[in-house]
Design a protein around this nucleic acid. Structure first.
Lengths: 113, 113
DNA sequence: TCATTCTATGTCATATGTGACATATCGTCA
DNA sequence: TGACGATATGTCACATATGACATAGAATGA
């Protein structure tokens, strides 16, 4: 993963999938990104659900606010492992994660195709 | 992740979950490991389905035989990202992955509790 | 027995991810 | 306006994952 524009575009609310051929993304790359974005959004949703700030969540995860921000932004520098283990620490079940992964990005995107 | 005995035990066919308190594993750690094992097994299943050797699969993935072996063995050194992207390259869909993740290890384990 | 093929395991240099820090942006309230 | 809290972004030292290589074990066939 190199291109950073990608994540920015997507985090900015693009309908994911629309940027596929735009950059040289393979189907697999695209799918992986979608899955990660699904997890990112789940993470933010759960955090807000619990009424936590990024700082508070970072404490629970024994991480830092900046990393939490990056997780939620779908930054290419965050691994799926980190997203998943964070969600698990927030109480998500395997079934929850499966849903996030399968559904990819759920939030009604602006610019929807 | 540090302990390597863990993966060995599990790869050896233990009913996953039975080793939980045995080592100092949190629920989250355990869940993550289960998910990874589910993916590992899916990978092996798909490879065999296609009649590929580990060497052949490694070529497709632009990786090496040893890493494929480690992926399939559930070695702690392999990331979820690698497992997932490998499965995607093998043609798995998001739904397939969701299933593997949700179900964790599927194979009827010996030593079942 | 020896070859051959496939898989497992250990090690290493390099690539990538991570937490931490600084700093910027944004919104809200006085 | 300024101050405050929350979030975003860039950078860096250190940790971990990765591909590659060597080598060992296991299974099969001659």
């Amino acid at each position: 993963m190199k291109n950073t524009k990608r994540a920015k575009l997507e985090a900015a609310g693009w309908a994911v999938g629309s940027v596929k051929q735009f950059l040289g993304l393979s189907e697999a790359d695209e799918a992986l990104i979608n899955m990660k974005l699904g997890l990112s959004h789940s993470l933010r949703a759960r955090r807000q659900q619990e009424g936590l700030s990024q700082v508070q969540l970072a404490e629970r995860l024994r991480s830092s606010q900046s990393r939490v921000a990056k997780m939620e932004a779908g930054d290419p520098s965050v691994s799926m492992d980190l997203l998943v283990s964070s969600l698990l620490l927030l109480g998500a079940t395997s079934a929850d994660l499966a849903k996030s992964i399968r559904g990819g990005v759920k939030g009604k995107g602006r610019h929807a195709a």
